[in-house]
Design a binder for these strands. Structure first.
Lengths: 121, 121
DNA sequence: AAAATAAATAGTAATAATTACTATTTATTT
DNA sequence: AAATAAATAGTAATTATTACTATTTATTTT
């Protein structure tokens, strides 16, 4: 993959925020560095950075967000402000631990386990 | 909420399949019963059925799927065929239990915990 | 049962997120 | 410095979803 200033700016933006930004947020921030950058360039590079395992895509409802924390982790999503907060779960009594450690009142735990179903064995 | 044949067909379709259908799938099936039904009607009724707690929306990546199983549960998502399989987790060693009970080889566990963050206390 | 009322519909247009296309620019190689 | 091919900007297309509006229909009132 050939170097490009645009891709570097995009990656830096994602690495320097904790907010798990959307493509649109990245686009508007990138424009302050490269005024002529186009939204298509943002999407194209997000895809390439994901292929390169430099970022990960997380779907929050129906909108894609991007995360440069490539260690396996999960998220706390606030119902009020929508923030996604990184966590590392490895505990059993999840709700209680989260209240203690993050002062976050759990109302719902949504979990998607992926893998290969029995049809493909 | 006033009765409508369209809404009844939509709800029946969701209740009689295990595939967690998308709005588009529901639309195409509903057309065989009500040829003039419109996609807007499908979306409007999906929203009403959700407000009425008759169905739940699950976001699978960036596309909404609808589920009439209103008991709290999670899903196994097959990487190969994309199927969503209902599960009730309450066990500790998740991966091993799932392999045993569903013959499903877990490769990833994605979890979103929602609630209220400390900014709102 | 007929008329009145308001909610629901079909059909179409609008919006938002994302992807595709293409002529031009630019990083890298020769 | 010239050649090459990957990346870009800008625009158009696509997909999922929502909004709008004149017409239809379920329900209520007479």
């Amino acid at each position: 993959m050939r170097y490009s200033q645009q891709r570097e700016v995009i990656l830096n933006l994602i690495q320097n925020t904790k907010i798990h930004p959307t493509a649109d947020w990245i686009y508007s921030k990138a424009k302050t560095h490269i005024p002529k950058i186009s939204l298509g360039t943002v999407y194209r590079n997000l895809k390439k950075l994901e292929q390169d395992k430099l970022i990960a895509t997380i779907y929050d409802g129906n909108v894609a967000r991007y995360d440069s924390n490539m260690e396996k982790h999960d998220h706390l999503k606030c119902n009020i402000c929508g923030d996604l907060i990184d966590i590392n779960k490895n505990n059993i009594d999840i709700s209680k631990t989260i209240l203690r450690n993050f002062n976050f009142k759990v109302s719902d735990i949504e979990m998607t386990i992926s893998g290969t179903c029995k049809k493909h064995t």
